[in-house]
């Protein structure tokens, strides 16, 4: 620590080493068309995804565009309220601003009929028994408390079905993972779909 030398007139005054500047701002986010439709579905206890074409990926929650195809996603698809855990994390750490009671299990859940996992809470099962491939279902708030937010789903819980050993982990469809080198050869853009033509996506 550097010694701060004060003029004689300030002897005895505690040196200033930092300033505290609290700042507070409130934000109002505009949901946009795709998210608005999704959240309206949530208020009806339905989970609505979107896709660009009748055969392309189903995005939940939808963002209005398919990032692989670079195309708008005008087709709405209702997906199931059941899904499979594709990975998870048990959080044992409380931190400033956190509202969650620890420990809690946050999981990536691939809903049946969707192609992108959503992150949500897993409950009604001890944390050390949660596993990849576990089948889960959504548990909603009481009807009176349903609001246009994903928090209207309180959490997911095991639905009693046997585990899915073949759960599709996004990116693993290419055998070893999209970004893996096989035989010392780097993957190329060819293994993702061409955003203009929809071609590609080859399996190695």
């Amino acid at each position: 620590m550097v010694d701060i030398r004060l003029p004689e007139s300030l002897r005895g005054v505690e040196p200033v080493r930092s300033v505290r500047t609290p700042a507070q701002l409130d934000y109002e986010f505009t949901a946009g068309d795709a998210t608005s439709r999704f959240l309206k579905g949530i208020t009806e206890k339905r989970i609505i995804g979107q896709r660009a074409t009748p055969t392309s990926r189903v995005y939940v929650p939808p963002r209005g565009a398919d990032p692989e195809l670079g195309a708008a996603t005008p087709i709405e698809v209702e997906v199931a309220q059941t899904g499979t855990v594709t990975s998870f994390c048990v959080v044992n750490l409380a931190f400033y601003g956190s509202v969650m009671e620890i420990p809690y299990t946050s999981a990536l859940i691939l809903l049946d009929g969707a192609d992108l996992s959503v992150m949500h809470l897993i409950q009604e099962i001890p944390a050390d028994q949660v596993r990849i491939g576990m089948r889960v279902e959504a548990v909603w708030r009481d009807d009176a408390d349903i609001e246009p937010t994903l928090e209207s789903i309180k959490y997911f819980r095991p639905n009693g079905e046997p585990d899915d050993p073949n759960v599709r982990i996004p990116g693993e469809g290419h055998g070893t993972g999209l970004g893996s080198w096989v035989g010392g050869v780097a993957p190329t853009e060819a293994i993702i779909r061409n955003p203009r033509t929809g071609e590609g996506g080859e399996v190695r």
Partner: peptide, 23 residues
């Protein structure tokens, strides 16, 4: 993109493409 259905979060494609390019 972070929210792509095809994305491999474990061994990301962009990381491999970056490496291949720099090598």
């Amino acid at each position: 993109p972070t929210l792509s259905a095809e994305r491999d979060t474990v061994i990301p494609l962009a990381g491999a493409l970056c490496a291949a390019d720099v090598y």
